[in-house]
Design a protein around this nucleic acid. Structure first.
Length: 418
RNA sequence: CGGGGAGUAGCGCAGCUUGGUUAGCGCGUCUGUUUUGGGAACAGAAGGUCGAGAGUUCAAAUCUCUCCUCCCCGACCA
């Protein structure tokens, strides 16, 4: 990809009305753009990050046998009346009437829709379990959107739903999902803490939240400053000794909730009459679980935890590109020939490469490269090229390696492997 | 929804207290020349409903009122 063809509007200055680092960097690096409070566009570079995260999610969901589908955002209120959540979620639902006068809403979540869907096909224990998920836009009329895409009115969520014939089945799916979540967050480069949680308006008995300690967090966990151990807040949340290292005291730390899983039981399946016949031909209620990841919030959280003064430092798996090729003298045909060869070579070897082919000063290109945070940079400049060398720079450590031009790819591979 | 802050060019701001030339600055943008290893230099140019409406006045970015929007704190939060 060429920068000049990619639409990456970077900003030199911190935009007004932004407090959170992630919010500032999302805007400055040209990843998102605000339309109105709590509503954001994803620009090409931001969308690329989103797709990377979606891919990780898809792989991990696939690995536990969950199947992807796509449910509508546009939903009739009649369905919500059946579970009573037209009342309990009234405050966050965006509602309106269509031209026929029918009450509609934009889905703040999808338990009702998926349960209605599964009901149409499942009648027998032979068809269970069913595990489905989607990555989709949710709408919540938040009183106060916050910190850019951390708390937005329109946001992207991965929501999975399991349907089982008994509690044992639910627990098995729940456990698999729990483990898949751990893997997803590790691959996103995050240290996540899972804590037992209130089920709140979702209903059900057992639930876990996945939290990332961070300054802008709206929730809290108890964390040991020494060893980093963390747990959820319990009743009477006085500080107590760390159960892991025994040295430090646990202290309340703000944290961002990026995932939440629930053993719902029969709350929705009962209300919507999702039943099946068991081996003995007896009618039973399907047992349900639901599993959410705030995908857009995850992007903000990754940035919040992976940045320095100069900009974003993307973890490997979610970086929009693997390598940025940075030719310094764009109007030098010989040099650009080398840059293009370098680009083709890397691209042909499976790397995802962005070339900053703008005719800009070195300083600006370096600063933008730091800002958008692609993990590796190959700098091609007259000076180095005179010796037939190019320079590789690692964004995270600022480590610089000068290598012969034809050694570049193999050296890059080595650096990436460590 | 309660409290606080803010809205002037694409971005960041000054001007407002004490009303008065043609509303300014930095960055960015366009043209040209010279540049190019950490946000280059010079010359020229484009770009504005001063958030909106009403009022006061000979005259409003500036004073008054109403409204809108954004941000922060709080309450709320599958």
């Amino acid at each position: 990809m060429r920068w000049t063809q990619y639409y990456i509007p970077t900003l030199k200055e911190v935009p007004i009305g932004t407090e959170a680092i992630s919010h500032q960097l999302l805007l400055r690096a040209g990843l998102v753009h605000m339309l109105t409070s709590g509503v954001y566009s994803y620009l090409p570079l931001g969308l690329r990050v989103l797709r990377k995260i979606e891919r990780i999610i898809n792989e991990e969901m696939n690995a536990i046998g969950a199947r992807e589908l796509f449910l509508p955002c546009l939903q009739p209120m009649d369905l919500w009346k059946k579970t009573g959540r037209d009342e309990t979620l009234k405050e966050v639902m965006i509602q309106f009437k269509d031209k026929k006068g029918r009450a509609m809403c934009l889905g703040p979540t999808h338990e009702e829709v998926i349960t209605d869907l599964v009901k149409s096909a499942v009648q027998s224990y032979k068809q269970l379990p069913v595990v489905l998920y989607q990555i989709q836009t949710k709408f919540r009329d938040e009183m106060r959107p916050r910190f850019g895409i951390v708390r937005a009115c329109e946001f992207i969520m991965k929501d999975a739903y399991s349907f089982d014939m008994d509690q044992a089945g639910l627990e098995k799916n729940y456990k698999q999902m729990y483990e898949a979540y751990q893997k997803i967050f590790v691959r996103c480069g995050l240290d996540v803490v899972s804590v037992g949680a209130d089920s709140g308006a979702m209903g059900g008995d057992v639930s876990h939240e996945f939290m990332v300690p961070a300054d802008i967090g709206e929730d809290q966990v108890l964390r040991c400053p020494g060893c980093g151990y963390a747990q959820g807040l319990k009743d009477g949340d006085q500080s107590s000794p760390c159960p892991k290292c025994q040295k430090g005291e646990l202290v309340k730390t703000p944290a961002i909730e990026i995932g939440h899983i629930f053993q719902l039981g029969t709350k929705y399946t009962k209300a919507l009459d999702l039943n099946f016949l068991d081996e003995k031909g007896q009618k039973k209620t399907v047992i349900m679980g639901c599993y959410g990841i705030g995908v857009s919030r995850l992007i903000a959280t990754i940035i919040e935890k992976n940045n320095d003064k100069a900009g974003i430092v993307w973890p490997k798996e979610v970086a929009p590109f693997d390598v940025e090729v940075l030719p310094l003298q764009v109007d030098d045909p010989d040099l650009m020939k080398v840059a293009n060869e370098c680009y083709e070579d890397l691209q042909g070897s499976g790397f995802e490469v962005l070339v900053d082919d703008r005719n800009e000063s070195a300083g600006r290109k370096f600063n933008d490269a730091d800002l958008i945070g692609i993990p590796y940079r190959v700098i091609i400049g007259k000076r180095m090229l005179a010796e037939n060398n190019v320079e590789i720079k690692k964004r995270q450590t600022a480590e610089i390696v000068v290598v012969a031009k034809d050694q570049m790819k193999s050296r890059l591979r080595e650096m990436m492997a460590t």
